[in-house]
């Protein structure tokens, strides 16, 4: 089967609605189909990869550890929009440490998160074949 560039655009907070959780389920299937998968986080979507998530008080599953497994599925391109982070008073330090192992570089751990401006993100979107927004 052909390989296409799939972009999963995440726009919503991780809890409150089911979109983030069900988006992640599609991402894992996309990776299993050996597609060229990227993720983008804009708006409240940046909270999906925030550090130290704790759902004890709301009775929902904390699914944030799953993002740490993405590197093992060769999902290594996680674009975070700079303007969205800044508008929420967040910096890269507030996000999980998401990495992947580069087997072509002696399994060096490399960061998956790429901080980009809205303009830079637009250029990334231009390169995609399929964009699924959540």
């Amino acid at each position: 089967m052909a390989t296409k560039k799939f972009m999963f655009l995440n726009r919503k907070a991780p809890y409150g609605t089911v979109y983030a959780l069900e988006s992640l389920e599609v991402v894992l299937i996309g990776a299993a189909f050996e597609q060229d998968v990227s993720l983008a986080f804009i708006g409240d979507g940046v909270y999906q990869i925030a550090k130290n998530q704790n759902t004890d008080g709301i009775g929902m599953k904390n699914f944030s550890p799953t993002y740490k497994a993405l590197g093992d599925y060769e999902v290594t391109k996680l674009y975070v929009e700079k303007e969205s982070l800044e508008a929420r008073g967040l910096t890269l330090d507030d996000l999980m440490d998401l990495t992947w192992e580069d087997e072509d570089d002696d399994y060096a751990e490399k960061p998956s998160i790429r901080l980009v401006s809205a303009a830079e993100l637009a250029a990334v979107f231009d390169e995609q074949d399929v964009v699924l927004s959540f």
Binding site: M1, K4, E25, V26, I29, F33, Q35, V130, L132, S133
Partner: peptide, 18 residues
């Protein structure tokens, strides 16, 4: 969900309504 990914691969355009 594989049916969704397959749709994206096979079609010329994938449209999302939501």
């Amino acid at each position: 969900l594989g049916q969704l990914i397959e749709g994206g691969i096979i079609a010329d355009r994938q449209l999302v309504f939501g």
